[in-house]
Design a binder for these strands. Structure first.
Lengths: 336, 336
DNA sequence: TTGTACGCGTTATCAG
DNA sequence: CTGATAACGCGTACAA
């Protein structure tokens, strides 16, 4: 069921059928109708490969994410999908599971799938060979969540957000403020947030506590729980993301601490689920869906201009604050 | 940078270059090496459209999900992505947000993206026009999570799982067992689970309580909370999915009920996050990732046989039980 | 307004 | 083992 078949049955030429699909208004209403009828009856779908081959535009965007287990990326992907749909692009998806090798392979698969541009979430832009490769191939790409001069990025100011949070916690009377992260080396965002913590503590003359790294093992969680049961435990825990915060909440509960009376827990990301938890999760919010949308917008604009994207094209989106029962209300220092 | 260019620079014909990429062993090691070198230097990537046009195999699978906000589908997608990757397929993704119109449009976009086969999660197979359309076009497809004779499905036995759960709750002493669902009409699974609840209650001579439908509004949640504060509230809540269970947990907390002493809450799906909550979420588990993998496996096999899939190809995977603090240990009736 | 014919980059066939 | 060449289905000058 190719265009030829449709043309034959409609008693017209392939050119006309093509016009009916790409430029309906320039074809005679009667022939148009007849062609459309035939096409519908046959369930004809234009062959995308042939079209792409001819037009050199696949109308497909590649998306590379670390994982979908973290709702942050799922939310971002929703935004990507929505914006892409609006702009007439399809998206092909790969995940890397935070693994360098898988990342390289994933990028290669995206490339050979014929994508026109890429939304990338990498562990660390500085060490990712995917970025060089993409550059070599000459496709526009944008990094979601990362912050770096070298590439086009869409993100919030991770460092500042946490810096700011530490200030607010201090303003509200907290002195012993701790930080809990995932595996620090697995994410440049986590590193920037940690940096914000260190700087914030220093700025206020507070002693930074040793960071708790919480990979997804029960052992690490138990360690945190033990530490929370020592004398003079922290009164606030700043977590590098909401998933970590949820697990910290659990450690606190197992340690017998009341949240937020004994311990305030603050997350980062603002995943939707956080509001449904008990206690609801206080969190620094990122506009995840907007980040996704913005990435696609940048890409599509670049594609339309037939240009690449570079560091100057980066977009900073504002972070926000979602109050929650896991943290006592903070002093009124404006957020964001 | 087409195959022609590579051929020119390598001083050979396009046919040979093609062979180097598709059948390396049949070409002279020296020419092969030279071609590979040139290709690498140029960053040459075979044009997928041209290849697809010629071979009539796009190596792309279409995936249509309701949303990624529910981790169940994110987990399933992980499985789909993993299996597809293993088998050399790319996946293009669309979401429908449980909306009929968007579903139709999404399917059309998948089709025109040139996918070879489809993994579909629809609200209700009986009313989905996507399925007819897909049939008309003649592509293999499989429904994830649904159960119906009419189509190839990969799912657990939803009705039986809940039926079984009700029995176990009753065995453990519960009499007033309630059911909380999302919007019942939005999902045939939810309906089947509800049916299991009704049948289970009847089989044990218990009175089914009016179902609580919990769309994502705070109002509905408050209703549940109010009802839990009446005299003789249920002692157990069977929830049609884990997200609903989490919100039910919140309603219980707001109502001042202790979980699990006053009220047991059981979810459905077994999302990973459930284990990290406090109380951890007891749940009937589905092998979400395996469901995704199985879908892709069926599809790829069908593609290899050049066949379509039908009701007879359906696969039932076993459900399981994940104990959690949200429910007191159940009597030993074997689960699953 | 419509039709003819070329070429997009590959793979596969067939000769050498 | 290698090269020439004919499709694959479509969009688009160009001609009518």
């Amino acid at each position: 069921m190719s265009i030829t078949e449709v043309a034959r049955l409609a008693g017209t030429s392939v050119a006309t059928v093509s016009r009916v699909f790409n430029n309906p208004e320039i074809v005679n209403p009667q022939t148009r109708a007849s062609v459309q009828r035939v096409a519908r009856e046959l369930g004809y779908v234009p062959n995308s490969s042939a079209r792409t081959l001819r037009t050199r535009r696949s109308q497909v965007l590649g998306v590379m994410l670390p994982t979908l287990s973290n709702p942050v990326f799922a939310e971002c992907l929703q935004g990507i999908a929505a914006e892409a749909e609006q702009r007439g692009y399809a998206i092909v998806l790969t995940t890397t599971e935070y693994d360098q090798e898988r990342e390289t392979a994933a990028a290669e698969r995206l490339l050979s799938a014929g994508v026109e541009a890429l939304v990338l979430v990498v562990s660390n832009p500085a060490t990712s060979q995917t970025l060089q490769r993409t550059r070599q191939v000459g496709l526009p790409y944008v990094l979601a969540y990362s912050q770096t001069e070298e590439h086009a990025c869409v993100s919030v100011d991770n460092r500042q957000a946490i810096y700011h949070l530490v200030e607010r916690l201090h303003d509200s009377g907290h002195q012993r403020i701790g930080m809990v992260t995932g595996q620090l080396h697995a994410s440049d965002r986590a590193q920037q947030r940690y940096k914000g913590y260190l700087q914030g503590m220093q700025a206020r003359g507070l002693t930074a506590l040793p960071v708790w790294e919480l990979p997804f093992t029960t052992q690490a969680l138990e360690q945190l729980q033990q530490d929370l049961m020592q004398a003079d435990p922290p009164t606030a825990l700043v977590c590098s993301n909401d998933l970590i915060a949820i697990r910290s909440l659990r450690a606190a509960a197992l340690a017998g601490l009341r949240v937020p009376q004994d311990l305030c827990v603050v997350g980062f990301d603002g995943i939707a689920l956080g509001s449904d938890l008990t206690p609801s999760l206080a969190s620094i919010t990122q506009p995840n869906e907007a980040i996704g949308r913005q990435c696609v917008a940048l890409l599509c604009d670049a594609l339309a201009r037939n240009a690449l994207l570079c560091g100057n094209d980066s977009v900073h989106l504002p972070y926000g604050w979602r109050a929650g029962e896991s943290c006592t209300p903070l002093s009124s220092t404006a957020f964001s």
